[in-house]
Write a protein that binds this DNA or RNA. Sequence first.
DNA 1: TATTTTTTTAATCAAATGATTAAAAAATTT
DNA 2: AAATTTTTTAATCATTTGATTAAAAAAATA
Lengths: 211, 211
Amino acid sequence: MAKEKTIKPVKDASAEEKIKEAARKLFTQKGYDAVKTRDIAEEAGINLALLNYYFRSKEKLFDMIVIENMQQFVQTIILKISESNISIAEKVEKVVIAYIDMITANPYLPMFVMNQLHNVPSELVAKMEPVIKPVRNNFLKQLEEAMERGEIAQIKPFHFMANLVGLTIFPFIGKPLLQRVSGVSDEEFKALMQERKKLVPIWIKAILAPK
Amino acid sequence: MAKEKTIKPVKDASAEEKIKEAARKLFTQKGYDAVKTRDIAEEAGINLALLNYYFRSKEKLFDMIVIENMQQFVQTIILKISESNISIAEKVEKVVIAYIDMITANPYLPMFVMNQLHNVPSELVAKMEPVIKPVRNNFLKQLEEAMERGEIAQIKPFHFMANLVGLTIFPFIGKPLLQRVSGVSDEEFKALMQERKKLVPIWIKAILAPK
DNA sequence: TATTTTTTTAATCAAATGATTAAAAAATTT
DNA sequence: AAATTTTTTAATCATTTGATTAAAAAAATA
C-alpha cells in the first residue's frame, strides 16, 4: 500500500499505466470472466504481484475500465447533441461521423458497452444520469418543435434514437454476421463504414420526411 | 458411460432434457465463462455428476447450445427470404415480423449470437454456410433486378442488410441503452417493438425510394 | 422377482485462479 | 551516500471449478 505522503503519491505512470492499458485492451475485447489476472500481467509485461499492489483487485481494475469505456461511449453523442443553434439534420450528421470515427478506432467498444448494460442493471449507468438528463431533455424539445413546425414527420423519440443508433452503431456489432452474409472483407467493411457517414444522414432524412 | 445396448440407449428425456434446458437458459443469458457447471446442475435440479454422465463436458454442452441458438437465429431470416414469388417489400415485411416475434420470445438470443460470432472466427458458422449461400445468392439476384427495373434506388446489398437488421434487431441489443436514454418502461418497450413491425418496412421503403 | 438401467450421494482430484507475503533488487529522491 | 519508493522474484494460500470415481438407492425392464 502506498503510504501517505506529504506531497503526492507520485505515480510514475510507468508500470501502473501499463497495467491499466493491458487491462483495458483485454477486458474490452473479452469481458470480465474470460480475462485472467495473469493474462493482464503478461500483456502488460509486469508480474502478477504488481497488479494487486496498484489496484487492490481484479474487480476494482475492471470497474475502472467499465466507467472509462462507458464515458467515452456516451461522451461521443453528448458532445454533438448538446451543441446549440444547430439543426437536427446537422446534429445527425455530426453524431454519425463522430460515432463511426470513434468506433473505427475502438472496434470492441460497442459490444463491450452493450454487454455491460445488459449485465449491470443500473449502478454505474445511474452515475452518469445527471449528465445525460439535461442533454436529453434539451434534444427532445428540439425534436418536438421540429415536428410541430412540420419540418419532420411525427415520430416517437424512442424510434428516432433507435433508428439513429441502429443504423450507425449496429453494423459494428453485427460485423461478423454482416460480413459473412454479404461476403465482405475487412478492407471493404472499413470503406463501407466510411460511406455510411454520408448515407445514414440521408436515410434518416428519408425516414423523417414529412408526408 | 452408457454401455452398448442391443436395442437403444433409452433416453428418458427426463434428466437429460432438464440439464439441456437449464444449460440453454443460463448459457444464452450469461455466456460460457460466467456459467459454472454447478449452476447448471442446480438450475436443472439434478446433481453435478449427472451432467458429466450425459454430456461429457461443459464445452460439449455449450457447443450444442451454440449450434441450436445459431440455427434458430438464421432460420428465421432464411425461411422468409427464400420464399419465392414474393416481392422484396413483402419479404421485408415478413422478415421484420418474424424477427420481432422470435426475439420477443427469446430476448437473450441476439446478444448471445453476436457475442459468439465475435468470439469464434468461423468454425461453427462455416457449417451453415452451404445452407445460407444459395438463399443469399437468390436474394441478391432479386435485389439487383429490382434496382435495374428502377423499382428501388441503387443500394449496395451490404447496406441493405445492415439497415434491415440494424432497424429490426438492434433495438433488442440496445434495449438497456435505449430505455435509459428515452425513459421507457419494459411494458412500453414491448409495445414499441410491436409498432416497429409496421414502421420498419415503411422506413425501409423510404430508404429505398427511387429518386 | 431378478436384472438392468438410471439417478443420487458423497468424497475426492487436479488444475486454474485471485490474492498475499516476505525478501531482495532496482530506481528514485532526499 | 543514505533513505525511500518502486518493482521483481518466488513461494504460498484458499477457493473455485471442471471432472471423476465408487457405492448405494431408486426406477424401469425383463
